[in-house]
Design a protein around this nucleic acid. Structure first.
Length: 587
RNA sequence: GCUGCUGUAGCUCAGUGGUAGAGCACUUCCUUGGUAAGGAAGAGGUCGUGGGUUCAAUCCCCACCAGCAGCUCCA
């Protein structure tokens, strides 16, 4: 955010004011170049600004340079930006006269009694509450970035306008740094790296939104799954497997059909019954719970599954591995008594903290409350929300509020991580559920002999493996830490005659389940070093006469040109340590 | 789904109303090289799919499929 502690917010006016004014400047240039343009909203946003405009003719990215030129001309010629208070009727008349239909509508959105203002520079005037710069020649730097469609007032039933994005800074170096950051984001794009590093693919022939994990990314996933298995096993989780296809009635009972039906695929018949592909794993886990009676002594029961679910997503939202139609959740449902609820949630929060730190993420937690479309009594919701808050207090986890952001069956705490590029992603979630136990009428026998309802805690740490690992690719820029890197060690013989020694090293490492690539195909060493470096392999072991004779290896780390000759046994100690501690670095 | 743009070799991309090219990768041969690209030759494409216009379509038009930038929605 440019608002909190951004050192670039260093001009005579706040950065957001600057950007808002540059947005106006852009609008005036568009008006000049495209007479008849109708303007919507044009605010400052996190990294810049945009303006939504209905244009009489199509605009393309290449037209942006032309608009920028006009902006510079206008800023020079008519720099004064004048504020004017107007009456509601006056505002409507003036905007109406210019056929600014969206702006006329915008006037009606202004609450009664609020001051209505226009801002004007040269012959361009715009309804706007401000604030703005006093002058447009205050020596700032801007760039227009891209064009896209956007619905008027964000409503898909209203007309679609053209949205032009841009950004502005007070200093040239800051603009350049921001543009460089955008380039970096592009370079790290998991779809780009996915092709370059042979990680995954999607196929038109197979349908969009379905990910094919190649061997390299399969290795990453296995390492992460193993890590998650160990950490959960250590914390008393039990692992289950449930079917992907279940009878439709089950989803009626669970409430999914009614509340989540839009996200589910059409049913199909098997003999005389209707079936559905699961969009969530919870009903399956309830099936297992309900197969026998439970004593309060059995609880909490922590049932975990890497459950693959299928959800309908509209074609336009699909995005690499980040937004897909079939994905695997590291899901779990904890069946517990009301007394245990807070402690169980606290345990989950601890696990989330541990896991996210392992990947080098920092995070924020949000308490998401009752949405409009929800099942269950308000009193129950309140109780669940209190438990979440209580658990967070217990482990001193600060919570921000996400009003109405809960699941249809209960409130939750969502975790948003910040990646190495400073971007936020929604990841882990802990959700309280008093409703599914009720719907499926599951129970346990309490110490007083009474039959009572357990509470279900839904939780996912990574969320979806597709989204999590897609995000990891970008977070690490393809440079995975040793413990989860696709190939951990490349062994490179200097000449063909050293291949035998290299093969021997490879065999030893592979014996300890390291992922090793002995690059002993014919060809020059330099070329292999280039390949290994481009493949982002953490370690290269290069061996020639000296190394073979002495039982050493020349170790070269990813991203460096330095080499360090050491006994192979010593390298193994280093490698073992990096793997077992899941170290993020290579030292 | 909507708006705009795009689809040519495994990858990145040129190109033309008369059925196609580059670099990298790949294969083979030569090269025995101490830390980021050794040399040569070769193979590889129904120019996303289906229609239409035309004497002729990879190129123009339409539809569909897929992708990209967003909007809306979400793990």
């Amino acid at each position: 955010m440019c608002s909190e502690h951004d050192p670039r917010d260093n001009g005579p006016f706040p950065l957001s004011t600057l950007r808002h004014s540059v947005s106006h400047l852009m609008a005036s240039a568009v008006q000049k170049l495209y007479p008849g343009a109708k303007f919507g909203f044009g605010p400052a946003i996190e990294h810049g600004f945009y303006y939504d405009i209905e244009l009489p003719e199509p605009v393309e990215d290449k037209d942006l340079r032309k608009i920028e030129k006009e902006m510079e001309r206008i800023a020079k010629r008519t720099p004064e930006l004048v504020r004017e208070e107007v009456s509601r009727a006056d505002a409507k008349t003036r905007l109406g006269a210019k056929e600014q239909t969206y702006k006329v509508e915008a006037v009606d959105l202004i609450p009664e009694g609020e001051t209505i203002t226009f801002y004007r520079h040269g012959d361009f005037e715009d309804l706007c509450e401000g604030p703005h710069l006093d002058r447009l020649d205050r020596g700032f730097h801007f760039k227009l970035l891209n064009i896209a469609g956007a619905y008027w007032r964000g409503d898909e039933n209203r007309p679609m306008l053209r949205r032009i994005y841009g950004t502005a800074f007070w200093k040239k170096e800051e603009l350049d740094a921001h543009l460089a950051w955008l380039e970096e984001v592009k370079l790290r794009d998991h779809r780009k790296l996915g092709t370059e590093l042979d990680l995954f693919s999607t196929h038109a022939e197979a349908g969009s939104g379905f990910v094919f994990w190649h061997p390299h990314l399969g290795a990453v996933r296995r390492a992460i799954e193993e890590f998650m298995f160990q950490e959960q096993a250590r914390r008393g989780y039990d692992f289950v497997y449930t079917p992907h296809v279940m009878r439709e009635d089950l989803f009626k009972t669970s409430g999914h059909l009614e509340n989540y039906g839009d996200m589910m695929y059409e049913g199909f018949g098997i003999e005389n019954a209707r079936y559905r592909v699961k969009p969530m794993n919870c009903p399956g886990h309830v099936m297992i719970y309900a197969t026998r009676s439970h004593s309060y002594r059995d609880l909490p029961l922590r049932m975990a599954e890497l459950g693959t679910v299928y959800r309908f997503e509209r074609s336009g939202v699909l995005h690499g591995m980040m937004r897909v139609r079939g994905f695997t959740q590291d899901d779990s449902h904890i069946f517990c008594t009301p007394d245990q609820l807070e402690e169980e949630i606290a345990g989950v929060v601890e696990l989330i903290d541990m896991v996210l730190r392992t990947f080098g993420y920092t995070y924020k937690a949000y308490l998401a409350t009752r949405p409009e479309k929800a099942i269950g009594e308000p009193a129950i919701w309140e109780r669940a929300t209190k438990a979440l808050q209580g658990a967070a207090d217990r482990v001193k986890l600060p919570l921000e509020l996400d009003e109405g952001g809960g699941a249809f069956y209960g409130p939750k705490i969502d975790f948003k991580v910040k990646d190495s590029l400073g971007r936020e992603w929604q990841m882990s979630t802990v959700q309280c559920d008093f409703n599914l136990p009720e719907r499926f009428k599951i129970h346990f026998t309490d110490s007083d002999g009474q039959q009572k309802r357990p509470i279900m805690v839904h939780r996912a740490i990574l969320g979806s493996l597709e989204r999590f690992i897609g995000g990891l690719i970008e977070h690490f820029a393809g440079k995975f830490p040793v413990w989860c890197a696709p190939t951990q060690v490349a062994v490179i013989p200097i000449r063909e005659e050293h291949a035998a020694y290299c093969k021997q090293l490879e065999k030893q490492l592979r014996g300890e389940l390291y992922r090793v690539d002995c690059m002993d195909a014919p060809g020059h060493m330099n070329n292999k070093i280039k390949d290994a470096q481009q493949q982002q392999i953490p370690f290269m072991l290069i061996a020639g006469d000296r190394e073979a004779a002495e039982g050493t290896v020349a170790v070269r780390r990813r991203g460096t040109r330095e080499q360090q000759v050491m006994p192979f046994a010593e390298f193994k100690v280093l490698l073992d340590r990096l793997r077992s501690t899941r170290s993020l670095g290579l030292e």
